[in-house]
């Protein structure tokens, strides 16, 4: 049944598609979970709607409330759609070096944007949002980095969908941002498959993004549970771009840049498994489509040029 009473009801139950051309062998297979097939085109629709509904249930959100959230884009777009349908005002705090498409989409949905300095990255957006929350006690900060409803959305929906569609799953690979996807899906899969490997792909940015970062002021999301993970890869922008293009050229999937980073890690674990001769079914997340990144030039020109253009951008 593919009929729904409203857009919000069309959330989730996304396709899991095999990648026969990119898989190393018949016994080591790669599978893409197409999260771009959600209502606003990203995996963030799941945690965003779950956080809104949890806040409605516990009475924090009432008709006309203002929602505040630090977001580099996709969560903001998901919240903006939900806020529009449910009648809330949304204020997003985002680093100024995020893509133009994300800003246009947020504005189209009626969200207000407060920019934080590029050099401070997401850490600074989080810090600024916390200041704004303290100054405006009637605003509701859902705070995706520490809201249990974020990981719980994946524990209740994404994880069960994967196990239902591929009971032989051995590895799950996703991006590491709020850590909600990895922690939620990881916990669910581990309960049913104790040996499952949960692998994170972490974006590695250029000097401009890390430049001012102080080692004593690091940021680890409150949701993060290191016991769920079994591995973590750091992926630079050139590798992420190369894999994003490879996914399109070889398997026809037009994905965003963070998906390229996730695929890079997925291929690394798949090749390791192939090397030791073990059977593996590696599921990785396609977090969003490529549409919002066209203006960054990620898909045109040489890899080196495209990587240079991304320097200083938060691409994931």
């Amino acid at each position: 049944m593919a009929r729904y009473d409203s857009l919000l009801d069309a959330l989730g139950d996304t396709p899991l598609v095999g990648l026969p051309r990119l898989s190393p062998s018949e016994t080591v297979r790669l599978w893409a979970k197409l999260e771009d097939r959600n209502p606003t085109g990203s995996i963030k629709d799941r945690p965003a709607l779950a956080m809104v509904e949890a806040a409605e249930r516990d009475g924090r959100l009432r008709p006309g409330s203002t929602i505040l959230e630090p977001t580099s884009g996709n969560t903001g777009i998901s919240l903006a759609m939900a806020a529009r349908l449910k009648g809330y005002r949304l204020v997003c705090v985002m680093p100024e070096n995020t893509s133009e498409e994300r800003r246009q989409l947020l504005a189209a949905y009626g969200a207000e944007i407060i920019s934080s300095p590029a050099a401070g990255g997401s850490n600074m957006a989080v810090a600024l949002a916390k200041q704004l929350a303290a100054a405006n006690p009637d605003w509701v900060m859902l705070y995706q980095y520490g809201n249990p409803a974020n990981a719980d959305a994946h524990y209740r929906t994404t994880g069960p969908e994967i196990l239902r569609d591929l009971p032989t799953v051995t590895h799950f690979v996703a991006g590491l941002g709020t850590t909600g996807t990895l922690v939620g899906v990881g916990r669910y899969l581990r309960e049913h498959k104790p040996d499952v490997q949960i692998v994170a792909a972490e974006p590695r940015y250029g000097e401009l993004v890390y430049g001012l970062r102080n080692l004593d002021e690091g940021f680890v999301p409150e949701l993060y549970d290191p016991d769920v993970l079994t591995g973590k890869f750091s992926v630079g922008s050139q590798d992420a771009l190369r894999r994003t293009r490879q996914l399109l050229e070889v398997e026809g999937i037009f994905a965003g840049i963070s998906t390229g980073a996730i695929l890079h890690a997925a291929l690394a674990v798949a090749e390791k498994a192939a090397g030791t001769g073990e059977r593996a079914d590696v599921v990785f997340v396609v977090a969003d489509g490529g549409w919002k990144y066209l203006s960054t030039g990620a898909y045109s020109g040489s890899l080196e040029e495209a990587a240079a253009r991304l320097e200083g951008h938060l691409w994931a």
Partner: peptide, 29 residues
């Protein structure tokens, strides 16, 4: 990440690239 490879006891092979980075909030948010 060495935290999943034994931490300070992680093996480092000849010619390896070791990268030190501050922890940041990363990923699609």
């Amino acid at each position: 990440d060495v935290r999943f490879q034994g931490g300070l006891e992680a093996k480092v092979s000849e010619g390896a690239d070791v990268t030190i980075l501050p922890a940041v909030a990363g990923g699609m948010r």
